[in-house]
């Protein structure tokens, strides 16, 4: 019973946060509600016994991605509310139908998955040591590939962020 209560609380936090992030007028409020939804997801992982994933979710999504969103809002002054502008775009039905289509695809593929018939394993706890060993042995190739990709992205960001060399004529202050 306590498990169900915790589950319902997490679900309320996640869904409430997500809905509020979509419907609120103020961009900053939206970003903070999205952070709430991220934290709710982390709580789900923790409830499932996946400590490593749960804390990583908290660290990356709440600690880094939410901050990134917030920083972007602050730097672009997009947080100001514009009066008279509707929150929904005028072709909202396109988005709704695309969302319904995606949901239908997901539900169909999940319902036809053979994993649904399998019983869950008895011991679901995944200590960090096991995850590390798996990453370093079986999944070392994907890990390295992701590392390379992220390094490339980092270098790209540095290149974009580099100050352009000044033209010699305009060098004088």
């Amino acid at each position: 019973m306590p498990n169900e209560i915790v589950f319902l609380l997490c679900a309320a936090l996640t869904l409430g946060g997500a809905v509020a992030a979509m419907t609120m007028r103020n961009l900053v409020h939206c970003a903070l509600c999205a952070a709430c939804a991220f934290a709710g997801l982390a709580a789900f992982y923790l409830q499932l016994g996946a400590q490593f994933v749960g804390f990583a979710q908290l660290l990356i999504y709440v600690g880094a991605i939410a901050i990134l969103i917030v920083f972007t809002i602050m730097l672009t002054r997009g947080g100001d509310i514009q009066p008279g502008v509707s929150g929904a775009s005028h072709n909202w039905w396109v988005g709704l139908s695309v969302a319904a289509l995606v949901l239908a695809c997901l539900v169909r593929s999940i319902m036809s998955s053979p994993n649904l018939l399998r019983l869950p394993p008895a011991n679901v706890a995944a200590p960090a040591r096991k995850i590390g060993e798996a990453l370093m042995n079986r999944y070392v190739m994907p890990l390295q590939t992701i590392g390379l990709l992220l390094t490339a992205a980092l270098l790209g960001a540095v290149v974009i962020g580099l100050r352009e060399p000044r033209h010699p004529d305009t060098n004088a202050r």
């Binding site: 952070a35 804390f55 709440v62 600690g63 901050i67």
Partner: peptide, 24 residues
């Protein structure tokens, strides 16, 4: 906790959001 130090840093990273909330 099995991932104790990760918990420490994950919890600590939320303080930036609080600072933003205060400032904004």
């Amino acid at each position: 906790l099995d991932a104790g130090i990760l918990f420490f840093f994950a919890i600590g990273s939320t303080s930036e959001l609080a600072v933003f909330m205060a400032g904004w």
